[in-house]
Every structure is written in C-alpha cells, then in structure tokens.
C-alpha cells in the first residue's frame, strides 16, 4: 500500500530499539507480581503476551529534536485503547471493529483556496517526502495521556505542495464517512453530525510540530489509530488529531469542528492543552499517563500546551486562552 517499504535486508524496528527490551521487562514484572499477587505498583498483574507490532515496515529517520525521553506507552495500549467514535464509544471498540474499514486504495480530496486542488492518491501525497519518527505526548481531553512514536511527514512540508493562496487562513480536515464500513455512523442516537471535522489556523498547521502520521512504532498505522493517514497536533487535546483523513480544504473562514458543534461550552476550536481551564465536567490539572495502575495510578501534572510551549506559545500571544479554549 504505502511506498518506502523497508528493504528486506534491513533490521526491523523492534530489533534495533529498546522496545522489545521494554516489553520483556513488562512481561517479567507482570509474572513476578502475579505470582506474588501483590500488584500495588504494577499496572497489570499478568500481562497479556506482548502484541507484536502489526503492519508494513516503514523506512524513517529518527528526529531527536522532536522526541522525548519519557517512557513510551506500549504498543498494545496505543492500539487497543482508542477514541475513534466512528467505530463506537467504548475504548476497545476501534480495535474490535476498525477492520471493517478498507484503507487501500485511499485518496484525499484537496480543495478550497489553493492552486493545486484535486484528488490525490495516498502514494502521491507521501511519495516526495522522507518519513520521520517523532515521539510525542498525546493528551486526551478526558484526562489521560500516552507517549507515542509516530512515523510521518511534517504538515509544513505537505501543505505547501497544494499552493494555498493568501485567502487560506484555515485548513479544514475531514474523516471518511461511510456507514457501511464505520458501524457507529449507523447509530440512531449519536449526536455527531458525521463526517468528523477538524481544523487548524494556517499558522498552527505550518508549525514545525504539526505532523501527518502514516505509522506508529515503525510500521503503518493500525486502522484503529486512524489509518492510513492522520493528523498529530501534540500541543492540543487528542480530538484535534483527526483520523483517516479524506479531505483537506483551505478556507478563509474558521471551520466549525465536530466537538465544538456538539458541546461548544466543553470543546473549543483551539483545544490547546491547558491545566488552567477545566473541562466543565472534570479538572484538566492532572492526567493519568497510560498505562496506569489500579492501586498506584500514574498521575502526572498536566503542562500548558502539553509541554510544547516553547514551540507554540507564540501562536497565541495576546489571546485570552480561557476564552479561546
């Protein structure tokens, strides 16, 4: 499906990174504690056999400037604990049902205020670019977070190829709408007006952190994580990082976003991670870094802009972030 497959003689990602070491440690710890039946400090007493990383291997360059030393969330958690409401509202639903979606072939429609609108096949979109690995924190608006090694291309490299003009103040993104493939789009009592829609201000989209991911843990994206192509905007709450993108539109007016349409008092357009602004239903001061334990929950303090203030705070200079939440 995706080009840039890793040649067969190359070492696979899991062979060269500490990930397998990490997984082994988890298994060891899990077994140890299961035997002791203590469990106070361990997320899971018996760890299910570590899930092998699925997908096609990708060739990429590590990006030390866009990485973190924080412990990565294990692959099985990244791929089995998801919010992808097209497949259901349960965290396990996407992993269960995303296989009903076909991602090959895949095309993305580009339209609006730009010089090169059109429908592009996935390969045409990614071919001119070299993949990078970026290890970003992902902070969900629901007060949990992960650390995910994404593979993809900077949005600032992708978007200029469509030659957005001077009226392009915002960029709008849209997820696939296909109730035949996405079972929760058939739900009678969903308040979401499908398709899922998101957007960024042009300067946000062109920020060096904004990323179009096509993979994670060194391989192509699992469907439940938004295959084949999804946004990753690490200083914003996770719902901004729209999955399975089929449309990109440049426009002058600020787009309305899906969550803003459902509950504008809860989810704003900007949705910057901000511990000072509570969600009306819960505090945003802290987050549970996953995997979290039952008896020793992995609470950490939430940082403004999810810790990416140095890169993005200037975008919001002079703005009242309690008003533009």
């Amino acid at each position: 499906m995706l080009i840039k497959k890793r040649p067969s003689w190359a070492l696979s990602h899991s062979e060269i990174t500490p990930e397998s070491v990490y997984l082994d440690r988890r298994r060891f710890m899990g077994g140890l504690v299961a035997a002791a039946l203590a469990g106070a400090g361990v997320p899971r007493l018996v760890d299910a056999a570590a899930l092998p990383v699925q997908g096609e291997s990708l060739d990429y360059a590590a990006m030390p400037g866009f990485s973190t030393e924080e412990e990565k969330t294990p692959y099985e958690d990244v791929t089995r604990y998801n919010n992808f409401y097209e497949f259901g509202t349960d965290k396990g639903d996407p992993a269960k049902y995303a296989d009903e979606m076909s991602v090959d072939p895949w095309s993305v429609t580009v339209e609006g205020e730009c010089g090169k609108p059109g429908t592009y096949g996935l390969e045409d979109l990614v071919r001119p670019h070299d993949y990078q690995e970026r290890i970003y924190r992902l902070r969900c608006v629901e007060a949990w977070s992960m650390v995910v090694p994404w593979i993809g291309i900077p949005l600032a490299d992708l978007l200029p190829r469509f030659e957005p003009n001077s009226r392009a103040k915002y960029v709008y993104f849209e997820t696939l709408y296909d109730p035949d493939q996405m079972r929760a789009q058939r739900s009678l009592f969903s308040t979401i007006d499908w398709p899922y829609q998101e957007g960024l201000r042009m300067d946000e989209a062109m920020n060096e952190l904004s990323f179009m991911a096509v993979g994670l843990y060194g391989k192509t994206l699992p469907k439940q994580n938004g295959a084949p192509m999804r946004l990753v905007v690490p200083w914003k709450y996770g719902f901004k990082s729209i999955k399975s993108i089929v449309k990109i539109r440049f426009q002058e007016e600020r787009p309305k976003t899906t969550w803003e349409m459902i509950a504008p008092q809860e989810y704003g357009f900007y949705a910057n991670v901000n511990p000072e602004v509570d969600h009306p239903r819960w505090s945003q001061k802290r987050e549970r870094r996953l995997p979290s334990g039952l008896l020793s929950p992995n609470w950490i303090e939430t940082r403004k802009f999810n810790g990416y203030g140095d890169q993005v705070a200037h975008l919001y200079k002079g703005m009242d972030l309690t008003k533009y939440y």
């Binding site: 899990g30 299961a34 997320p43 899971r44 007493l45 018996v46 760890d47 299910a48 969330t73 294990p74 958690d77 089995r80 604990y81 965290k91 396990g92 949990w144 549970r288 996953l290 995997p291 979290s292 334990g293 039952l294 929950p297």
Partner: peptide, 8 residues
C-alpha cells in the same frame, strides 16, 4: 490484568 491501560 485484563482491565486495560486505564483500570481505575
């Protein structure tokens, strides 16, 4: 240990 990553 089958409660997933956010057992609480």
């Amino acid at each position: 240990g089958s409660l997933g990553p956010d057992p609480g």
